[in-house]
Structures are given as structure tokens and as C-alpha cells.
Simulated scan of single mutants.
Amino acid sequence: MTAFEGIPLEAVDFYEDLEVNNTREWWAANRGRYDTFVRAPMEAVAASLEEEFGPAKVFRPNRDVRFSPDKSPYKTHQGLVVTTASRMGWYVQVSADGLMTAGGWYASTSDQVARYRAALDDEDAGAELQRIVDGLRSAGFAVEGDRLKTRPRGVPDDHPFLDLLRHRTLDAARRYGEPEWLPTPEVRDHVAEDWRAYRPLMDWLRRHVGGSRA
């Protein structure tokens, strides 16, 4: 494999065009752009990070439209994930909005949610997660996830970790847009630095939530 040279700006251009031309005919005519400017660079990113973080899955471009009212055949982003447990992992994607990194718990099952809430009822575990989340926010990361609009049933108004308890998933992310280093090998360094910053969150989730046992 040739040395990683970054993610070309043509990848962003490709997704800008795809957002307004999401048809099989357009894709067939532009498949070479996807292979050259999107797929190959993302596979190279994955390879460059594997020694430190482990093997990545580069997602396929096709959408599963069987149960969706949106029948657009192709995803409008290209992502890859290094899985740390079922429904948890490090993530990076490129789209019309540019580059994004993320890490955490991105989909949940009932047993995972139960373990997460039980951990937050433990003062030490809850305080540890609060410190991790506060630290990520202070460092400029967005803390996100699927959240209930109200507190979970049976949780008192004065619970010390009420905001965290509303989460059914929990991740941190940074959106870069199109930085000047995007088409350079520096991409690898920025992604790796973010993934290292997510490691305390990943470790907490691994210890207290873990993969689905359902």
C-alpha cells in the first residue's frame, strides 16, 4: 500500500454533488470518483491507525432502505469504526461537511442502558464519568447521544447525575470542516489525537456498560 497522503478535498466535493444527485445512475457515472477520492483514502486512514487502535471496518456506501421512507440509495458520508465492544467504538467520517471524529457508545440495547443507569447510581462511578464528560467539553469536544426529553422513570429531580442519566447512548465528537491539513498526512495525527482523548470515555463505558448481552 502506498503511503497515506491525506483525504483529498475532492472527497468533500463528491458528497456535495451526491447530496443533490443521489441516484444509481449518477453513482454509476461517478463511481471512479468515490473509489479514488473517498474509499481509498479512508482505507489508508484505517491502515495508518491500525497498529495503535486495532483493525477498522470501512462501511459500505449503500443505504439499507427496506424500512426507511427515504429511498435514497447511497449514504451521504463515508465512515469507518474501530469497535471496542458491541455498539461502541472509535469513529471517523468524511462528508459534504468535511471531517468528523467521534468515540463512544453509539447504539444501545435495554441491558446496556440498565447497566449504564446502575453505574450512575454509584457515586464514585458517576463522579468519574462526570469528570470525563466535563473534561471533554472543556477541550472543545461535543458530548452527544440519544437522550430522553425527561428524566428516566423513578429517578428523583435532585439526582446528582440527572443529565447523564437521560442518555441512552453517549459519545464525544469533533467536527473539523475542511481544515488546511485535510489533504495531507496530518489527518492521521489529528484523528489519533482525538481518539486518544476519547479513551477515558471508552474505558469507562467498557467497564460499566460493556457490549450487549441480549
Results as ranks from 00 to 15, higher is better:
E193T: 15
A119M: 06
Y198F: 15
D35C: 00
V58D: 09
R199I: 00
F37S: 15
A56V: 04
D163C: 06
Y91I: 07
D13W: 01
T2W: 04
R196F: 03
P41C: 00
W105D: 10
A47F: 01
M1K: 06
K57D: 05
G54P: 03
V45R: 02
S138F: 01
V38G: 03
L136M: 05
D171Y: 14
Y74F: 03
S138N: 04
F161R: 02
F4D: 07
T76M: 13
E193F: 14
H77K: 03
A46T: 05
A197H: 01
D13R: 12
W27S: 06
L129V: 07
T169K: 15
R166Y: 01
L164F: 13
R39V: 00
V143Y: 00
D111C: 07
R147D: 12
D97A: 15
S138M: 09
S138R: 09
Y198M: 15
E193G: 15
Y34P: 14
G32D: 14
S68I: 00
D13V: 07
T23N: 12
A44M: 08
F67H: 02
E128V: 09
Y15F: 15
V187Y: 10
W26C: 09
F53D: 12
K75W: 09
T150I: 06
M88Q: 14
E25L: 11
V12Y: 05
A142C: 02
F14E: 00
E51L: 08
F53V: 03
L49S: 00
F4W: 11
W90Q: 10
R199Q: 13
H77I: 00
R60T: 02
W105Q: 06
D124A: 14
R175C: 08
P73G: 10
P179Y: 12
E10S: 08
V81F: 04
F53R: 12
A173D: 04
A173S: 13
F14A: 01
G104R: 09
I7V: 00
E25F: 06
G89P: 14
V58R: 04
N22I: 01
A29S: 04
A85E: 15
S48Q: 05
R147E: 12
P179D: 14
W27G: 01
A192Q: 14
T23Q: 08
D157K: 12
R115T: 08
Y106C: 12
M42Q: 01
M100S: 11
N30R: 13
R175S: 11
E186S: 13
S95N: 10
T169A: 04
R196E: 11
R207G: 08
A40Y: 01
P8L: 10
M100F: 02
A102S: 07
A214P: 03
D121W: 12
V82G: 01
M42W: 01
P8S: 13
R206Y: 13
R213V: 02
W90P: 00
V12H: 04
V45A: 02
R206T: 13
S110G: 10
G54D: 11
Y91S: 00
E180A: 03
Y91W: 07
N21D: 10
L205Y: 08
G79M: 04
W181M: 04
F37T: 05
G54S: 03
L162H: 08
P55Q: 06
